[in-house]
Design a protein around this nucleic acid. Sequence first.
DNA 1: TTAATTTGTTAGTCATAGCTAACTTTTTTA
DNA 2: TAAAAAAGTTAGCTATGACTAACAAATTAA
Lengths: 228, 228
Amino acid sequence: MTNKLNLNNLTKSEEDYLKALFQLLIEDGATKVGNNQLAEYLKVSPASTNNMVKKLKTKGYVVSEKYGKLDLTEEGKPIAVRLIRKHRLWETFLCNYLNFTWDEVHDVAEQLEHIKSQKLIDELDRFMDFPQKDPHGEIIPNADGEYFVLPKITLSSLEEGDTCQLVAVNDGSVTFLKYVSEIGLALSSEIKIVEIREFDKSIRIEFNNAIETVTKKFADNVFVKKLV
Amino acid sequence: MTNKLNLNNLTKSEEDYLKALFQLLIEDGATKVGNNQLAEYLKVSPASTNNMVKKLKTKGYVVSEKYGKLDLTEEGKPIAVRLIRKHRLWETFLCNYLNFTWDEVHDVAEQLEHIKSQKLIDELDRFMDFPQKDPHGEIIPNADGEYFVLPKITLSSLEEGDTCQLVAVNDGSVTFLKYVSEIGLALSSEIKIVEIREFDKSIRIEFNNAIETVTKKFADNVFVKKLV
DNA sequence: TTAATTTGTTAGTCATAGCTAACTTTTTTA
DNA sequence: TAAAAAAGTTAGCTATGACTAACAAATTAA
């Protein structure tokens, strides 16, 4: 059983595609992921995606049948998980040690996650005393590549009268993250659903002894744990 | 006086060439730097260098006449200095916080210096409380881009009986750095020139109450401050 | 079940940045 | 100072990874 030493001779682009596919497959809970979907996610043309998928297939990281859906192989998955681990460790470092705010970390972490050095990431992990979650509340995969997905209950899925605790937010958009912190929400904030307006599905929520109205779109990007 | 905001829209390669040219021009004290010299330094072909130099000239960072020597413009220099600043700050971070040794930092810092984020480097500097020197003893350019070159007196330039203090080492080679630390030399080590052997210019030096013989090649890469 | 729409694929182009081989200019040295 | 060597340049090739335009297959809707 020659556990092949991962040389990680992948380009930045190849890494980006593998990570994106993983996130669509696993994180967003999609049952099937197609070429165009991946293209849209990465904001490149379907032709570019098709090209790269072809390459990743010959390298043994991706499988798909012609005109069929995409999947990661057992070799492809750990590469994606390691990238997510690196991304989240860097985000944690930036927030906790370098005074970055929620909305500032993502772009820099996107660059830092491609730095190739096993020692760098192991030592960074140790330096921060092995954090479990990143600043957005997402679980950081450990050095063994174990990956846990938080059950993603969105704020929008709750009903009037429910109470919940904020466990994570979608980190894709800077304007969203700014908005979240500006209204005073933070990880672990306790939120009560006061009212859901039938007309436009907007939600009146109570937290920090104040009431705020948010849209359904907003609530779709806020992940919570329901309190009993 | 519109101090043009530096967008730093340069590729990794462009940055590498500018930094390399700067180091040949300023640090190694070369009066003239030619195309092939730059190529050799960067370990690429003269044709590649010629090509890139052409590009950097149209961008206004490099000047040269056809078949003439290369020079950096006033726009090109600060870009190189900023890269050196980033490189040295990262090296310092890796050594002082992440348990990296002298010889391990260089390759990772080469990657990290290309991360584009002004805030990242400013905050890293602040986090480490504005260090003045990197782990190899080289002065770190400050945020204003002020660049001081240590007067580079090599160990090989001294004479028998002279005493000196190690202030810096050439960080280009891993085997050299390993060698330096293995024999027990470190920054600020006090070294006495016991004897210079005429035959092969090898030098017997005394430090830490022990005597060691080193070659001229070794002594060429050790920078010292002469003690009176 | 055919037609329209969406999704996926292919071919061909572009920019970056490397390379070799051939050539020109400059510098060195005999 | 003329020949040899070194340094610099150009042309043309390669790979990566974008792109558009045209086309094929699969899916959805009429």
